[in-house]
Amino acid sequence: MSFDIIHCMNVFQIIFSLIIVILLFRLIRNTSKISKNNLDIIALPFFIILGLIVILFPDTSTVAANFFGIQRGADFIIYTSIIIGFFAIYKLYIQKLTLEKKLKEIATKIALLEKNE
């Protein structure tokens, strides 16, 4: 039984492209719910469209990699993903700490108010 690699890749390309298009569509519909930050509103669709380009035209990642002095496009994607992932986690962590601080202030206010009543 032969295994048609090229055909398989095309299937994956179609599936991933569909996922990305759905993601982009949902993002556009819910932009205001997802973030109020201007940078997020620009950056999220930008990276999603970038992902779509890389899936449909895999050679573009190699061109970008070569521009940064990296040989393989796949390596470039991994490095970029690590940096973006780290940044996203850090941002979420800061948001969590900010919420914790606000929650602490609210709890203190409620405790003091109840004591005064």
């Binding site: 914790e100 929650l103 602490k104 709890a107 203190t108 409620i110 405790a111 003091l112 109840e114 004591k115």
Partner: peptide, 17 residues
Amino acid sequence: KVLAHPVNIGVGGAIST
């Protein structure tokens, strides 16, 4: 005297209150 937090915040939050 009891000061009651509505939810669990943590020991730092309690000291702060």
